[in-house]
Amino acid sequence: MYPRARQHGLLVDRVGDETIVFDVERKEAHSLNRIASIVWQHSDGAHSLSEIASVLTRELDVQANESIVLYALDKLSSVHLLEGDETTELGHSTTRRDVMKRVAAVGVAAIGLPAVLTMTAPTPAMAASGGDTLPVDPGPD
């Protein structure tokens, strides 16, 4: 499996270790935390899951494995940031609970799991009127 990040129809900016992505078609803004950003940046169709896990290990100085990469790909796929439907190739999705079981022993949990915050761009009337302004905590699956 060689995941490929979607390229078209996206505006991308970096802020610190995080990546901000705006989906022009869906009018959605996403904030990828550091670990999700690394997985997304290396989803170029040339890196396998194990190679991306190796990148995580190197850049984050933790022992990462394919489970956490799959978890990140699940998150990215669910908000349409991957080409095709990469994570269903293996016939299942990876839940936070699965990942926590597998990574607890190797230290990745200490730096946090891959997370993608998403919000729909407000219309002008929404931005200027009633509504919830607090970013939504991604929370557990």
């Binding site: 802020v15 990546t19 901000i20 803004a29 904030s31 915050l117 002008p124």
Partner: peptide, 19 residues
């Protein structure tokens, strides 16, 4: 808030977010 969350908190209240 992380820097990314801060961007989204502002973006959620931006009048020209879509335009």
């Amino acid at each position: 808030m992380s820097r990314g969350e801060t961007v989204l908190a502002l973006f959620d209240n931006t009048l020209a977010a879509r335009s």
